[in-house]
Design a protein around this nucleic acid. Structure first.
Lengths: 145, 145
DNA sequence: TTATTTTTGCGACATATTTGCAATATTTAG
DNA sequence: CTAAATATTGCAAATATGTCGCAAAAATAA
């Protein structure tokens, strides 16, 4: 699974006429098997392995060829791999501790989204659903206090 | 209705220990009864009535006390009043022409969100749903071309 | 391996957002 | 209503975030 994702990634680059480079592999690996991660964190982690400009160019490319996308969490955004490399899902983000909990795809929810779009004659290509609140842990703490 | 929103706004400021100021009223009025609006537009419109720094401080305050919030539309974000001052709703945003279409609250959708949160022992306080795609107009154009 | 094509790092920009502080407006107390 | 106390504003400067051009380095093609 690990290996196959990288293989798919390389193929995706090639079929889109882009080179397989060190920077792209590093960034891909940073994104793989992770929670959504911010540009800033990526930058901090990869500081001496790639440049800021390259990171932005890399993420832009990843979006273009459908490898990664930006997830909006409240005000900021973070990056995560697309459904091709991880299952389609949405997030619960805890406003207290910052934890981001992925939630599994819900057929009913997805169907509803399509249905609502249709009602408006709108051809939806993608969507984000972000839910904010308190995770079970923080909720417990709040109650105690 | 017009007046009552402003009254509620003033009360909200006061109960949160903040002054009712000219700038805050202007910004509130700019947001009222509008589509989500970008910082840039607000800035352009209010250029000679308030300063950039004040606008940012105002919007931050509005978020803090639950008067307005940032809506992420694809990569950028815009500002709009919260449900307290406008009905709860979500958006369809056209990736071609940039139009933002508000969609009316859908009971089933809202219920589903709560239900999913519950499953994860998560106490949801708010959520955003953003759908991107082509509006009917742009879709027609694309087909023709 | 060499030639060709792409990508990277760097520094300079451009834009977006935040901060400190003195001046001004708002609120409070009388 | 006025004066004192407190909160907010504008301005200029500092940071943060994102983009660009170009020579050097890496990847691909021959």
């Amino acid at each position: 699974m690990d290996d196959s994702a990288i293989r798919l990634f390389k193929t995706t680059l090639r079929t889109n006429n882009h080179s397989v480079t060190k920077t792209r592999l590093i960034v891909f690996n940073l994104l793989k098997g992770q929670e959504p991660i911010s540009m800033n964190s990526l930058l901090r982690i990869g500081k001496n392995r790639f440049d800021r400009a390259s990171l932005y160019r890399t993420i832009n490319l990843f979006e273009e060829i459908g490898v990664a996308h930006r997830v909006n969490l409240g005000w900021k955004y973070k990056i995560e791999l697309t459904d091709k490399f991880a299952h389609h899902h949405h997030h619960l983000s805890c406003t207290n501790c910052g934890r981001v909990i992925p939630i599994r795809e819900d057929d009913e929810l997805e169907k509803l989204i399509i249905q609502i779009s249709d009602t408006h004659n709108f051809s939806a290509s993608k969507h984000q659903i972000e839910i904010q609140g308190l995770c079970s842990k923080c909720m417990r703490l709040k109650v105690v206090m």
